[in-house]
Design a protein around this nucleic acid. Structure first.
Lengths: 141, 141
DNA sequence: ATCGGTGCAAACCATTTGCACGTTA
DNA sequence: TAACGTGCAAATGGTTTGCACCGAT
């Protein structure tokens, strides 16, 4: 379970600098339990740094994604991508088709090693995505 | 396992008309084993109907998706969506991060009923998405 | 004769990029 | 002070929409 400082430390090890904007963006992602869109991150960052631009948010999210510290989620929805800080535990989400809110699934239902083994011949598996779609308590009427 | 005609028949039952463009788009999706982007569908349709517009392709793909006859796959990257005709069998894909090509997984690795049961209280599960990402034989060097 | 479907062009919207300046190491 | 990071504005690219005409039922 990584802390905000540990995340920033990992960035530093990769040669990235520590800036107030970057700290704030990581902090926002850290605090929020659920995946956020770039726009949502931007709005929250602006509460502290009103001058921060949306491009900076995008650039930092991309950078965090490349560093493997953030996962980007955009399967099967035409909406904007959502980003989540990976604090360590591997998991997936239940996504509400109505309000877009997402809930964490307690565990990964997939035996990745088994799948990797099965396809080792033709494919090198790097990553996977799994999402459940449906309606949350307040949206199913 | 649905045929092209059966797909068009299902559309008719929902009040949609049978047009040459629509027939052709369904035919293209049918022939292609792999998911295609809207642009790819457009290019292939144009081989037969040079005048067809990209918007028509999008409108028909959306219509087929709404009718539950096509599944939309958004790769974990920011590339364009891909669309696949559902001929009946439920399955998922292995997607190459380099060339974008996808391979069908033989089976669904998820016990959906189990998951539905587990979350029945707070969530009504409608659908799910699962994708493996990695590198295919020719792209991993 | 209707009303859905289509083509065209313009609009939209999330995301990306070029550039000049400010900041971190 | 040398890159890196940021803000701004403009570009990009996939997808959607308004509108007038065409064609299937």
């Amino acid at each position: 379970m990584l802390s905000v400082d540990e995340v920033l430390e990992q960035l530093k090890e990769r040669g990235y600098r520590r800036t107030p904007q970057r700290e704030c963006i990581v902090g926002i992602l850290w605090e929020s339990g659920v995946p956020l869109s770039a726009r949502e991150v931007h709005e929250r960052v602006r509460a502290t740094f009103p001058h921060v631009s949306l491009d900076t948010v995008y650039r930092n999210l991309e950078l965090l994604r490349e560093a493997g510290l953030v996962s980007q989620i955009n399967l099967q929805s035409r909406e904007s991508a959502r980003f989540e800080l990976l604090k360590g535990e591997h998991h997936h989400h239940l996504v509400c088709l109505e309000c877009g809110e997402s809930v964490c699934l307690p565990a990964c239902p997939v035996d990745l090693h088994e799948l990797e083994r099965r396809h080792a011949g033709e494919f090198t598996v790097i990553n996977h995505a799994f999402e459940l779609y449906g309606y949350c308590k307040s949206c199913r009427s």
